[in-house]
Amino acid sequence: MTTVLEDHGFPYDVELFEEDGPVLIERGQVQTLCAAVENGNPLFWDDEVAAGLTGGPVAPLTMLSAWFRPHHWEPGAAEPLVPLALHFALKERLGLPESVVAANTLTFHDPVRPGDRLRTCQVLKSVSDVKRTQLGQGRFWVIEVRYRNQDDALVGTDTYTMFSYRTPTGADHD
């Protein structure tokens, strides 16, 4: 199959920037988050309930992106992974230094479980023509981040609609 590159240099609907998650899914981190938001859902605290409903312990669904943030430090680490690398590559390619997240949708498939190893990739869904907004002149684009477990089962997607733009002054809001 031939991959078609659009005028911005990236293809649509092709999985790019595949990465292994930097951490093993583990229950300590799950309960730390539950404690932070005072989430008493027994799925995360009671093995018997988790066994009965979800076939064993699971992680809060909204933790998906957390599993792809590397440790703050680790021995011999290279440069940390850049989240949404496709977004930053598009910004650079199109010369649009500033960005805001216009919308974000998380979709959940199979649950993530302690012991899982996750992988991710990024898929470009669309890039708009040049638009003028109150923020400046730029383009909207939609990137779908896909997450899969060690069995290649889809566990979720994280879809970002970004608006990247240029103004005479101002900082990058990413």
Partner: peptide, 9 residues
């Protein structure tokens, strides 16, 4: 707590 629990440093 929320930031560190979501591994956002």
């Amino acid at each position: 707590l929320g930031a560190l629990a979501t591994r956002d440093w």
